[in-house]
Amino acid sequence: MELLDIITDETVFIGLEASSQEECLQAMAGGMEKAGILSNKDVYIAAVAEREHKGSTGIGFGVAIPHGKSSGVQTPGLAFARLKSPVEWNSLDGKPVQLVFLIGVPEEAAGDAHIKILIALSRKLVHAEFREKMLAVNSTAELYQVLQAI
């Protein structure tokens, strides 16, 4: 199982134009819906919003990893966006966000291989070097290259 198995062209947004967190999430979830990851986009977005409400997923360094465990998710999946201009995310360090990893996990998915790969991604994001590589990504192909290395 690799990260590339759960991300598709439809869920990669390089240079996404969004003026708010909500707009950004809507666009990315739209891609996940198209890719067949979501069974009910609204239910999923609500779960993501609730998670944000409990505490921002903006982990600092311009990165956010919104996520939702929801019955609106069919199979575990990942969407990636590099925003054209940073948006406000209530991040831990107060800085706006430019890289967004949106994670979707079905309600009943504990312990499954997809989860493990998403956990690996979470761990990776803590490292500055990895984040710099992600920020430098300019095309879907380049993104895949970086993600493949996980």
Partner: peptide
Amino acid sequence: CPTGIAHTYMAAEALGQA
């Protein structure tokens, strides 16, 4: 953390690195 996908592991990684 409640979802157990992101923060749990990022915090672990960050603490380990530090």
